[in-house]
Amino acid sequence: MAAPAVAGGAPRRRAGLGLERAADSRGVYGGLVVVALAFLLAFVGYPLIYNLLMSFQEVTLSTMARLDRPWVGAANFEAVFADPLFWLVLRNSLAFTIACVVCQVALGFALALFFSLRFSGAAWFRGVILAGWILPLLVVGAIFKWLYATNGGLVNEALLAAGLVTRPVNWLSSPDLSLLSIILANIWYGTPFAMILLAAGLAGLPGELYEAAHLDGAGPWQRFRWVTLPLMKPTLLAVLTLCTIYTLRAFDLLFSMTGGGPAFSSTTLPLWSFVFSFQQFDFGKGAAIASLMFVVVIVAGALYVRSLRTEVRL
């Protein structure tokens, strides 16, 4: 690298100006990091703490703007637990999370394995499937609401034509089916993401091990069971926790397809918190549910970060 021609050959340093010296000190790096961290602290950290405080206060529309609100201890939490809807909402949340995560990761893994076979077009097909995942969730909600429509929806038309049902099914307006219908839509949406991450993991596996297993006479199932699966465990764990975090966060699809109804049959914890805060203006209870959820996702987040560490060590 050619240095600028300066008499004496010493590297040119524009000394003097304090600003310039500051721009060249090692402290610059710290400063750059601090700006973004300060942003996150102000717009994530502060709301997080504020929410925690609110969950122990009585907050109404009129006291919303003040901080000196009456403290009520754990009353908001007790009210939430005692609410007749609590168990229904908790059950919905668990069913939604478990069904979505298990199916997304299982299907995603199956697809990732299939597309890892060396056939023409494999990478291209795999990539094109991800188009489902880049759609805004509101668009996914609109598409599936039309597919599920009782009147003229493709799902009902196909089932009627095949003779599987005799009259159109109310996929979204029946309390027994609404959550299931959204789960299916969410599996459609989330599977490509799991697939892409798992495919990246598969691509990183050492090929020699397969050659060795092959020479040792291991069949496809044995190679999967004794080579792929153990090597993929850290990636699977990371993808599993990541999908869990995304599913716990889910809101847009549920809110746009059913709004949590009918009769709360598709309300999960984030939706319930939202209903308390923005529809009933009972901010204390909304904040209490949010605080509980924050604890859950932060635990899941910690597991995720840990799983990344083990992956890196591999």
């Binding site: 709301p47 997080l48 966060r249 918190s273 923005f278 904040a287 959820m293 924050f294």
Partner: peptide
């Protein structure tokens, strides 16, 4: 990892 739907209220 924090759910935006839950941060929306304090925000």
């Amino acid at each position: 990892v924090l759910p935006p739907a839950l941060l929306a209220t304090p925000m």
